[in-house]
C-alpha cells in the first residue's frame, strides 16, 4: 500500500481529483495544496474551533478529519462562503460591530455562526453562545460576536417574514 491515496471531492464548488498523503489532516491539506488560508490551525486537538469547516453542509473540526476522508464529499471554507455571498450580512456586521480583533478565530466563528443562521429561526443570546461554545476567541470576550449574530439573525428572520407575507 502507498502512503498516498487518490481522492475526488468538491472543494468550494469545484471538483478536485488529487493524490493525498494519508496522514494529513484536512486543514494542513487545504492550506498546503490549495493555499486556502481561511482554515486555521489552532490547537490540532479539537478544542479551539479555529479549523471549523463545512463538510457536506455540516460543521466539522478540520483538525479531526483526515484529508483522505474528503473523498466523495463537499468541502466548503470561508473563502467559498465569502464568494457565494451567503454570509455577506454577517461579515459586514462583524466588521461594523468589531466582532473580531486579531481575526484568527474568525473563520471558525463565521462558519459556526452561519450554521446557526442557516436554521432560519430566532435564537436567544444563550442559544447563540451555546452554538459557539466550542469556538475559542482570546481577544473579544465574545460579546460583540454574539451581538453581531443576534442582529443578523433578527434581520434575516424579519425579512423572511416580510417575504412570506
Amino acid at each position: 500500500m502507498s502512503e498516498q491515496m487518490q481522492i475526488s471531492f468538491i472543494l468550494n464548488g469545484e471538483r478536485k481529483q488529487v493524490l493525498v498523503p494519508m496522514r494529513l489532516h484536512i486543514i494542513d491539506f487545504l492550506r498546503e495544496k490549495y493555499e486556502l488560508s481561511s482554515p486555521r490551525v489552532g490547537c490540532e486537538h479539537g478544542v479551539c474551533g479555529a479549523c471549523t469547516i463545512r463538510v457536506d453542509g455540516e460543521l466539522a473540526r478540520g483538525c479531526l478529519m483526515l484529508a483522505v476522508q474528503a473523498d466523495g464529499k463537499t468541502i466548503e471554507t470561508l473563502e467559498h462562503l465569502t464568494q457565494t455571498g451567503e454570509i455577506k450580512d454577517l461579515q459586514e456586521k462583524f466588521v461594523e460591530r468589531n466582532a473580531l480583533q486579531c481575526g484568527y478565530c474568525t473563520s471558525g466563528m463565521l462558519i459556526t455562526a452561519a450554521d446557526l443562521l442557516k436554521q432560519g429561526k430566532p435564537a436567544s443570546r444563550e442559544a447563540i453562545r451555546d452554538h459557539l461554545s466550542g469556538n475559542y476567541c482570546r481577544c473579544t470576550g465574545y460579546e460583540a460576536i454574539v451581538d453581531s449574530i443576534e442582529a443578523v439573525m433578527k434581520k434575516r428572520v424579519e425579512s423572511g417574514k416580510r417575504a412570506a407575507r
Binding site: G46, G49, T52, E58, L59, A60, R61, L64, M65, T112, D115, D130, H131, S133, G134, N135
Partner: peptide, 12 residues
C-alpha cells in the same frame, strides 16, 4: 444531548 460537546463535535 445539551451536555454533549459542541455543534461541530456533535456532527462528527
Amino acid at each position: 444531548i445539551p451536555h454533549i460537546a459542541h455543534p461541530a463535535i456533535r456532527s462528527g
